[in-house]
Design a binder for these strands. Structure first.
Lengths: 339, 339
DNA sequence: TTGAAAGCGCTAACAA
DNA sequence: TTGTTAGCGCTTTCAA
């Protein structure tokens, strides 16, 4: 039923080797004439090489895997697009995994990807499987970690400058005359992203003459359904809050809900600035000031670096793992009362 | 370097055959004792079967492919999540392709997936490769088409009831006293989705006593950057428009922009109803009335049907291709002036 | 109950 | 310039 390289060889009256060589652009030792004959046979039979067999033999699949933590967040879709585009350009296919921040799922997926012999993995790690990553890196498995830092892990890393993004957000609030600035962030236990954005907040406050006692920090549990209630409760506890720095676009949606419940007006009562530019931010009332992150670019870079690393496998010229830090950009609209 | 089934066999003092049998749950002909020995060896060596070799031999990879047309639209991410979850539950992995509505890319991707021997494909087709789909179906390649109908194609199909969704949206507008109802839709040449939503609009208008001459239809080019301008121009041409039915969440964003430019107020000046519920719809001012589509469910169903079809391969009990139609749901908020 | 051996479709070292 | 041959790691038929 299925056409194999043998069928092509037979039809073109050559050996499988010759066909294989031509398939792989190995023209060096082939007559123009036989090449044509083989190409013709391939076309006539509509032959498609079996990537499984090829991969089994050559130890390379030209497939990479991506492990994301939350497909619901449009930021990740943007990253995914960057990775996918790059794969397509470079002749790779992409296997996708959604860990949902679940470390067990993460571990399973890694195993699955390895069994499928993917050439490398791009991962936004749950950061709860330190051992696992270490083992991967030690075994020289091509890996690019994105968006989060894993302490003491020597691997390629593409991340965002969260401290700067948070700093400039809070500074923007302060420059617009806000005095009681709160920050809403996910529990910072593990994830560097949240830690760093909180740090940026603290830094900006301190540098602008505020004391530690004036920090207003609300930590949210990411898993729970009561995020909006928590925000409402927080705002009732500190009713003079005049600005909120929301460190994530999903949190922002909850802040918006809370503000509406309390009939607090933006920016008159409370200024709001949010991490992550989204397609809808400009259409809110008032249009939302945001910190834009180059998600697509992060995806592209991660995939490029991964593929580059893989192709240098074994050679001496292998560059040591590097960390690339991408810069955020403040998009000023109306939600902070800026003129 | 790599551990193979041979290593396990050696360590457990059995043949590869026995190991293979145990790996595949073929316990029927195995002693409890040898099974234990093999399992122990597998654990000790941390053995991972090579899925390539397995697939090459068994002609099944337990991988399916999904081809989406636009990763930027959160609707598709929801569908993707449904597909991915189902794959994970059922022991499959997922290969992702983003066609961007480009028929050439679509054709390439299909070839790639086939070369990689994926067991089946879920696709939101560009609908410009009719020949291709036909060939696929004729060759019995497991295929589930989602969200769009392809004329005369005998394959499994999971779609939405677009006529009903559009009808109920327009009816809602009419019930709220609107008289000059416009619809904004993508060019309807190929895609059944847009055709059907437009049809729902026409049907609702006709049934409520309007004539064909009173239809206000704006067709947008999906590829272009001037969608907002087109809407503005349209609204200037028909300044007495008092309601807009937007047939897609991306279009809605442009409508919102246009309305803002023209300082038209929702719902006082113009009522707005939009296809696709989104995470931000409820946070707009006023909160947006939408037609919700069960995207996650569509993804789940598509994957389930595909995998089910595949496993019945060759058997007599193979059910004929079916079309499953999922129902939309109107989510009434404030943007149409409903009490 | 277990194993030997053939072979899935491809690549590559070596020979011609 | 081209072909022969030996596997890649697994499953499966057939024999023991």
């Amino acid at each position: 039923m299925k056409i194999t390289i043998g069928d092509v060889a037979e039809r073109a009256n050559v050996s499988k080797t010759t066909v294989s060589r031509i398939l792989n652009g190995n023209y060096a030792h082939t007559t123009e004439e036989t090449r044509m004959r083989v190409l013709k046979a391939i076309k006539e039979l509509d032959y498609r090489p079996n990537a499984l067999a090829k991969g089994l033999k050559s130890m390379r699949t030209n497939v990479i895997g991506i492990m994301l933590s939350n497909l619901k967040n449009p930021f990740w879709t943007t990253v995914l697009e960057g990775v996918e585009d790059t794969c397509h350009e470079l002749g790779y296919n992409l296997m996708i995994c959604n860990t949902n921040e679940n470390p067990e799922a993460e571990e399973e997926y890694i195993k699955e990807l390895q069994m499928r012999q993917v050439d490398g993995i791009v991962v936004n790690p749950t950061v709860k499987n330190q051992e696992l990553y270490k083992k991967l890196v030690d075994s020289k498995y091509p890996l690019v970690v994105i968006n989060r830092r894993i302490p003491n892990l020597e691997t390629n890393n593409v991340i965002m400058n969260n401290i700067k993004g948070a700093y400039s957000a809070v500074e923007h609030l302060l420059h617009n005359g806000r005095k009681k600035v709160a920050v809403v962030v996910y529990a910072t236990d593990y994830v560097s992203t949240w830690k760093e954005r909180l740090e940026g907040y603290c830094l900006a406050m301190l540098r602008h003459g505020f004391s530690k006692e004036e920090f207003r920090i609300l930590e949210l549990e990411q898993e729970t359904d009561s995020q909006e209630e928590s925000i409402i409760h927080f705002l009732q506890t500190y009713p003079d809050t005049d600005a909120i720095f929301s460190t994530n676009n999903m949190i922002t949606l909850h802040v918006l809900g809370a503000l509406r419940s309390l009939t607090l007006h933006i920016p008159n009562d409370v200024a709001l600035i949010s991490y992550d530019e989204t397609i809808w931010a400009q259409h809110l009332e008032p249009p939302l000031t945001t910190v834009r992150q180059p998600g697509y670019h992060m995806g592209k870079m991660a995939a490029q670096i991964l593929i580059q690393t893989m192709s240098k496998e074994g050679s001496e010229s292998k560059a040591p793992p590097a960390t690339i830090v991408l810069e955020p950009e403040l998009i000023i609209r109306k939600s902070c009362g800026a003129k």
